[in-house]
Design a protein around this nucleic acid. Structure first.
Lengths: 135, 135
DNA sequence: GAATTACCCTACCAAACGAGTAGGGTAGAA
DNA sequence: TTCTACCCTACTCGTTTGGTAGGGTAATTC
């Protein structure tokens, strides 16, 4: 399951998509409108900024904004930044791979199944973008 | 990510599949061969038994065994019993559904995306069975 | 029917994680 | 120079995870 933090992230991004190219949006505006604890949200947006997804402007008239076109940012990227691995096992993760001990990947049925699941997930999560958040 | 407990469960089940219809298998045998902490494994097998996936026999010559043919038990069922929800959001889970507050499911882009992901996951996890664990 | 075997159950514990709070620092517009 | 709004660190508290300990009890078998 996605953490609450990740769900907050998507809710915030949804708003930033709607205001795309309308100038920076205040954290406090997002927090109020989307009912997200202010300081918690600050943390999330900072993380997204560090990853280059969001930009920010300080001082009066400042706030956060999307750096790229919404249709250029896949949903998968957000999940990886905020939540971590998407795969169901460390040994099939593309970005967070970890070898599993006591299990030879070449003869592990579960491994094969989870590879399939991962591919199926990514087929969707890499294709869908922030633009799809707004319906 | 699947919990370690769930991964243990699959490893144990793998062994029970291999010994299917060869009589009960001792917990201690599974624990030793699969390198799973004995008491922890006990807990897992008990859970699987309560759900009707495993049966057990007490006394000398006892142990655990699969109640049904391995090809009749979908991988999804194991995950649900041991790990819980498969879906990425509570509001798209079939067996553990929970309404998400501050979000109208009819106008939530994320919701729609996660429905797709869930369907893609289940297409695999409901089709693959315990028989597929052994390659 | 007694002993043994091996399942069954409860309780406990430490570490990690999730979700959120607090409070001040600092850059940059105006 | 002052105010605004981002930036950063640290802390708290409850839950989950992974695992341990120890004994109870039902079924076999002899």
């Amino acid at each position: 399951m996605l953490s609450k933090k990740t769900q907050y992230a998507f809710r915030a991004l949804e708003m930033l998509v709607q205001k795309y190219e309308q100038g920076p949006v205040l954290i406090s505006d997002i927090a109020r409108k989307k009912k997200i604890p202010l300081k918690f949200l600050e943390n999330i947006l900072l993380q997204l900024k560090k990853d280059g997804i969001l930009g920010s402007k300080k001082g009066k008239g400042g706030g956060y904004f999307l750096v790229h076109k919404p249709s250029k940012i896949p949903v998968a990227r957000i999940i990886r930044v905020v939540d971590g691995p998407i795969a169901m096992l460390p040994c099939v993760s593309l970005y967070f791979y970890q070898k599993c001990k006591n299990c030879d990947e070449k003869h592990c049925g579960l491994h094969d199944i989870m590879i399939d699941v991962r591919d199926a997930q990514l087929a969707i999560l890499e294709k869908k973008t922030l633009a799809d958040l707004v319906v």
